Computed example of a mutant assay.
Amino acid sequence: MRAPIIEIFSSFQGEGLLIGERQIFVRFAGCNLNCNYCDTNDSKSVQSGKVMTPGEVSKQITKLMTADCKSISFTGGEPSLYPEFISEVSRNFDLNIMLETNGTLPENINLIEKLDMVSLDIKLPEHFDGEFDESIFQNEIKSLNLLIAKSINVYCKVVILPSTKIKSFKEVVEKLSQNISNKSNLKIIIQPSSPLGEWKDINSKLFEFSEVVGQYFEVSTIPQIHKILDIE
């Protein structure tokens, strides 16, 4: 078993509910989407990764272990392209396992044997050049309901761009609310795209986006802290 790996490194989580926590990151190469805001463009192609075995990845993780690190984050690219590989690596460690995913491959996500937390991106029409494929959202819903049914700790991250319109954003949040089987414990993280200097009147816009989500879900607004700290 092999998979293309961009990098394996230790850093602070810069996004979402575990922000500020030390993690070991395993970044896979290859993605099934082509988002226009992606900040890891080099991970989109499988050709950009180094082909490694689960054993080789596990050795690199072991070398990076520190006392303050309690979890491994599998990210990308799109890590759910490699469910068996993730399961194989995870068996070697008594650590919490986090998946950072676009959620569009529910069948693959279901194959991952051990998951403690999932950060699932909800895509907006503005995230793509050209017409938005509605199946993306439908598969994200399937993944969320699957994870909730398995009692896995999952939250949604929604990246907003300076071009994101409140109207389309509200439509997506409403659809999300209507289609989630149990939304009582689901939290939404609004993440303004980096760099923040590209925004005009960001404060007023962020309050407006937060108010929209707050009608249906718990909500927090968190920028990419690792960009502010200038770390990987």
Results as ranks from 00 to 15, higher is better:
residue 171 E to F: 06
residue 163 S to Y: 14
residue 184 S to A: 11
residue 183 K to A: 00
residue 14 G to R: 00
residue 37 Y to N: 12
residue 30 G to E: 03
residue 107 E to D: 07
residue 155 Y to N: 11
residue 144 L to H: 06
residue 145 N to K: 09
residue 24 I to W: 02
residue 149 A to F: 07
residue 172 V to Q: 12
residue 58 S to K: 04
residue 6 I to M: 08
residue 2 R to F: 12
residue 143 S to A: 14
residue 55 G to E: 13
residue 181 S to C: 14
residue 79 P to V: 07
residue 174 E to V: 13
residue 159 V to H: 04
residue 223 P to E: 08
residue 124 L to N: 04
residue 69 C to M: 09
residue 22 R to Q: 11
residue 184 S to D: 11
residue 9 F to I: 05
residue 53 T to D: 07
residue 9 F to R: 01
residue 184 S to F: 08
residue 226 H to D: 06
residue 169 F to I: 12
residue 75 T to G: 07
residue 22 R to F: 09
residue 182 N to K: 15
residue 95 L to H: 11
residue 136 I to F: 00
residue 123 K to A: 06
residue 126 E to S: 03
residue 175 K to G: 03
residue 50 K to D: 10
residue 131 E to G: 09
residue 220 S to T: 08
residue 169 F to Y: 13
residue 124 L to M: 15
residue 188 I to P: 00
residue 201 D to G: 12
residue 82 Y to D: 02
residue 11 S to L: 04
residue 16 G to A: 02
residue 4 P to R: 11
residue 51 V to H: 10
residue 201 D to Y: 14
residue 158 V to E: 00
residue 133 D to A: 13
residue 13 Q to C: 08
residue 228 I to N: 15
residue 53 T to A: 08
residue 31 C to D: 03
residue 225 I to V: 15
residue 210 S to P: 04
residue 212 V to F: 00
residue 76 G to W: 11
residue 158 V to H: 01
residue 83 P to Y: 01
residue 231 I to C: 05
residue 96 N to G: 12
residue 152 I to Y: 15
residue 55 G to C: 13
residue 33 L to Y: 00
residue 83 P to E: 01
residue 153 N to K: 12
residue 82 Y to C: 04
residue 108 N to Y: 05
residue 41 N to E: 14
